[in-house]
Design a binder for these strands. Structure first.
Lengths: 335, 335
DNA sequence: CTGTTAGCGCGTTCAG
DNA sequence: CTGAACGCGCTAACAG
């Protein structure tokens, strides 16, 4: 079943069939009906490969992600997926673990897709994935380097969290840092925001209050355990993501401390799990779905020849729930 | 940069370049070296589209998933992804929400991929996704209908869970059923396993002990709350997945009950989150990553002309953790 | 409005 | 071991 078969059956040329399947104008209604009937009758489907090879516009966009087992990534993809569906586009997801070489499958994307969205792309020397010489589809980068980048205000979000805890009366506020290999930039920015905010308030910040983590729940538990055993333990912990914040809550509970009464915990991300945990997590919300949605929108704009202003930095939002409360000074003063 | 350019630069024919890039034998080493040098120098990359269009074998496999925001699905994809990488294959993920029409992007898969793995595919009248007439790549189905299907022993797993609770001395064991729209077959099988096991032991099973859920944490919480407020509340709850089990734990805690002392809770799935929850969840482990891994292996076998014996049913495994304990009879007898 | 002529880039016959 | 010719299915130009 090729376009030629349909053309023969409808008594027209291949070109006319092509015009019909591509939804182009300028085909007489009765001719169109005849072609459509022939298509229906034969069960013909256009071959997207041949179409792409011949230079037709692609309605497929590609998205590369470091891993699909991180809920974080799933949220972004979900946002992109919805936006793509709304725009009548198809979305193909490729995993591209950071540090790994470029998967061969991506060569395909280059020829087949109308645009590429990369989540946390590895930091390539060259900004582009493809050899510069050849023409490539537009690409937008989420949280990584690139010509068109969509970012989240990690620095500002961290300052929000630190400011919130300080305003509650906490003076001993520790931070569990994110992994420095997975999303190094994000982790560094959150650390910087935390530091700057505390410094600006003249709060002491012992080295021991900055504890390394891996973004995994377990590392949050371990880090918090160590923090809480310090001679002068923190009364509040700001973790660089929700998973580690949950670990911190568990560490506190293991030591017989109550959250938020004895320890306040603030996370970062606001994944659905933040609401499924007891106590519900106070956290800095990242607009993850918006990230995916905007990425697809940008790709559409780029395809239309428009130039989004890059980089675009999305704001975060502090979501106060149950894992945070007043600092000890507020109580101690009264007692 | 086409194959012709490389051929010209290396002073050979296109055929020779093709032989080199396809790793075929019968090219003189020095010629091969010359070609490789020309490729390196020019930054040439084969166009997978043209290759596929010309009938070459594809190293790409496709996988369709209902959604990427369910951790359940992420695990399977992760397994498939690892197996694909090990086999030197590329994997493209497409979302295909159940109930939705076939995304156009899948037409592409048909022409481009060497095989298709479908997670929980919608129940099509016709077993195959494509029109039967045309040749299609092999497809294996995970948890859904199809010529080659990979399944999990949901029935057996549910019996394991019910038997375990009964062996602990529980006599009042309730079940929170999974969504009947999302993965109806799975939910029904788990319910059937639960029923059969309790019946075989002659345990009473009031209608009120079978409570509907949606697979979401919130529905587990609501269902458990209702169950625990029954005049004769259950002492154990078996939920059809981990998320609802977590909800049940929270419902119990909200009512001042201790888990597992006052209520035992068993889940289903054993997602990573089952270990990140307090108390750690006792649950029926599904080999999700194996599902993805096996799917890719089957696709490879099918490409080689072998016929896997279908359906293949993978066993589950009961993982005992902290959310389950002896039934009240054991204690009450002593007191 | 429709048909004709060229390719898109590569793999595959066949001869040499 | 290599080279020429042809075809995969479709679309972009240009005619008519």
């Amino acid at each position: 079943m090729t376009i030629a078969d349909v053309a023969r059956a409808a008594g027209v040329s291949k070109m006319t069939v092509s015009n019909v399947t591509s939804g182009r104008v300028g085909v007489r209604p009765e001719t169109r009906a005849r072609v459509l009937a022939a298509i229906e009758h034969s069960g013909y489907q256009v071959n997207p490969l041949a179409r792409a090879l011949a230079g037709g516009r692609s309605r497929l966009i590609g998205i590369t992600v470091p891993s699909l087992s991180w809920p974080y990534v799933g949220e972004i993809v979900q946002g992109a997926s919805q936006a793509a569906e709304a725009a009548g586009l198809d979305l193909a997801v490729f995993t591209w673990p950071s540090g790994q070489p470029l998967p061969d499958g991506l060569a395909l994307l280059r020829h087949l897709t109308g645009g590429l969205l990369s989540i946390l792309p590895p930091d390539l020397e060259d900004e582009s994935i493809w050899p510069r010489s050849a023409p490539s589809p537009p690409q937008v980068s989420v949280g990584g380097p690139g010509r068109y980048q969509l970012l989240v205000d990690n620095y500002g979000g961290a300052r929000q969290a630190a400011a919130y805890l300080a305003d509650l009366g906490h003076t001993r506020i520790a931070h569990i840092v994110g992994a420095t290999d997975t999303a190094p930039h994000d982790a560094a920015e959150r650390l910087r925001g935390y530091r700057d905010e505390l410094h600006s308030r003249g709060l002491a910040l012992p080295d021991a209050y900055v504890s390394p983590g891996t973004y995994h729940e377990r590392s949050g538990l371990d880090a918090a355990q160590a923090l809480l055993r310090l001679p002068d333990p923190p009364t509040a912990i700001f973790a660089a993501n929700d998973a580690m914040a949950v670990g911190a809550v568990h560490a506190a509970q293991d030591l017989g401390l109550r959250v938020p009464h004895d320890l306040s915990v603030v996370g970062f991300d606001d994944l659905p799990s933040a609401r499924a945990v007891r106590p519900n997590l106070t956290t800095v919300r990242q607009p993850l779905r918006d990230l995916g949605r905007l990425g697809v929108l940008w790709l559409g704009a780029l395809a239309r020849g428009e130039q989004p202003s890059s980089p675009h930095i999305l704001p975060t939002e502090l979501v106060v729930r149950e894992s945070s409360g007043p600092g000890p000074s507020r109580f101690k003063g009264v007692l």
